[in-house]
Design a protein around this nucleic acid. Structure first.
Lengths: 356, 356
DNA sequence: CTGAAAGCGCTTACAG
DNA sequence: CTGAAAGCGCTTACAG
């Protein structure tokens, strides 16, 4: 039920402020004021050459007084380095990608780089093109790419990859881009543990609510689970709560029998739990439910969700480090792809199947 | 319980790829290849002056063939515009700020701007300084700022605001920055509705788990709730699940009596529900719980969470539009601050208090 | 310890 | 319709 409250849109008129910001100072002007050359000002700033204490002091005080800051664009033009890296994720507002972004940002900060965010909107080709162009125009020095669906070999990414561009794949590897370094989780091992855990509880009939069908992580997770449940019915969702709900709804309608639901992420698991609840099925008494990821609220909801913890923050950090180190090295040669460990977290949503 | 699974860290050695990307082409080289001046190449690209069909065709085919893309930095140096805006949020990995970021990005895209993300780590002064410097070095043309705590008047932000910089406050207004345009939710009205709803259910004793104490939104929400519950005990949290849990834990330990918990965001509400559950108190039979925000899983958990829906996506979009329009106009004059409506969403977590 | 000058890769008056 | 040249604001050999 939604009760519309009688709120409304208020528009407040802000005081007209002083006009647009004044033209910023240039190094030229500082030099003139100090009675020295720009060369000396530049070196005072960079410290790449000795400057007499007297002069340095005078220049520095002028800089403080004027509030001078060197123009980043000009620096960039000389050096050829923008000091920025890009992160392309399907949707920055998802918890999952937000964690990756934070990890990347932390590391970028450490290396004194800025971060440009690129939402690919689940691989909308137009937007993707835009973002690869950032790389080509040298607005960014490197790109961390998180695929959300299977990428076709015709894509921009493919052509880019051939040229040994500074690109790192985070979270998902992409078929055909085996040569591009990647940072991923050990999906297969996590899924295997999950399957074994549920199997050991005594379950025999399970269903799998998987992610996007072509995605490598989906394939690996399904395979891992199937080691314990070879006959599990597999249906595909889109990682959203709603699709967990919908897929379980359909399975119930089809009359599929199961005592355990494997969802390929926690959001779909939550959706699945909701649908089961509405069907009068208790979790875990009637049906066990497991997820993947260990999102922030997985341990707080009731029952707590049994899942596999991935360290998304670390995936972000490692991806960024790989990228930034190869930028520093000036080559992508010999960059080592990384697969991170995962951890089974057993909570209240799994229990032995009903006695019947 | 945590079962460590026997997974491990796998390191894969990537094929050494061709060396670093080759030097990109310059407009100079295209001009030479086409046998024309850079002027003509530039105009072919910009269309700001007619170019003979013959020549244009030749140049364009060369550009395609070479895969030439103009250097963004050089363009920027001439134009003085970086084509980038910044978004400073406390933590990009929070759902709440992620939604804002997505809204901002959508709009930035529409205006053909790039987005630089700046996590302020809850107003860590060092990082904040860094990000304001982006503005000063003209790496970004404008900044959208989301405060997470009370900002002291000594802060960088304050001095910046005096100079009519292109800054827009998103989600939170800041004392002392009344002249800076802002986009916020109608917190007071939402809180008032929430208080009234719970009051009308018959509750008399309520507690409020508020957000950061100095934050304007916290003040407004507490005030709104208190219109219906003047005597409500107020405790302060940090918007995280854990603090909702902890504050309720403390209230129970203190022996405070209540039949309703107002949490100032959904995460703390979820934490509160968890603690109540552990104490053997049923929601909503024994205690009603409400949140604020309407996060994605608010309607899916059991019971569904009664809350106030804020449109974070729209806050992001509107903030960006305000900023980008004033950049286009070249002045912050007459920018209208906006307050967006909110909506009470009643779900299963609220019910009349126990009969006793 | 310091300065004049070239140059990064573009755009844009100015002059045909 | 086209080109030579100045210049955006820095950095950095080169030359004292």
């Amino acid at each position: 039920m939604i009760t519309d409250c009688k709120t409304f849109c208020v528009v407040r008129y802000s005081e007209p402020v002083d006009d647009a910001a004044p033209k910023p100072w240039t190094m030229q002007q500082i030099a003139a004021a100090a009675g020295v050359s720009v060369t000396t000002v530049s070196h005072t700033l960079s410290g790449k050459r000795p400057v007499s204490t007297q002069t340095a002091l005078r220049i520095r005080s002028l800089i403080d007084q004027f509030g001078y800051v060197p123009d980043a664009g000009a620096r960039r033009l000389k050096s050829g380095r923008s000091g920025m890296i890009g992160l392309a994720v399907p949707d920055i507002s998802h918890w999952y990608f937000g964690r990756i972004a934070r990890g990347v940002e932390e590391m970028a900060n450490e290396y004194d780089y800025g971060l440009i965010i690129c939402s690919t909107s689940n691989s909308d080709p137009r937007r993707e093109k835009r973002y690869f162009n950032l790389l080509r125009t040298r607005s960014i020095e490197g790109l961390i790419y998180t695929a959300s669906r299977e990428i076709g070999p015709t894509d921009e990414l493919m052509s880019i990859s051939a040229s040994a561009s500074p690109i790192v794949l985070a979270d998902e590897v992409v078929s055909g881009l085996e040569r591009v370094p990647s940072v991923t989780s050990l999906n297969s091992a996590g899924a295997r543990e999950l399957g074994r855990h549920v199997r050991e509880l005594g379950h025999r009939r399970a269903v799998i609510v998987a992610g996007f069908e072509g995605l490598r992580s989906t394939i690996e997770r399904v395979a891992g689970i199937r080691e314990s449940f070879p006959d599990a019915v597999v249906v595909y969702g889109d990682f959203e709560v709603q699709s967990g709900y919908d897929r379980v709804d359909e399975l119930l309608a089809r009359g599929v029998e199961f005592t355990a639901v494997f969802a390929c992420n926690d959001y779909m698991a939550v959706g699945a739990m909701r649908r089961l609840h509405e069907a009068g099925l208790r979790v875990p008494d009637d049906v066990s439910v497991v997820g993947f990821d260990d999102i922030d609220i997985a341990g707080v909801i009731t029952p707590g969700l049994t899942t596999v913890r991935q360290d998304m923050l670390e995936i972000g950090r490692r991806s960024a480090r790989l990228l930034l180190e190869s930028l520093a090295a000036g080559t992508m040669r010999g960059i080592e792809s990384v697969t991170l460990p995962v951890e089974l977290v057993v909570r209240g949503s799994t229990a032995p199947p009903p006695a019947s």
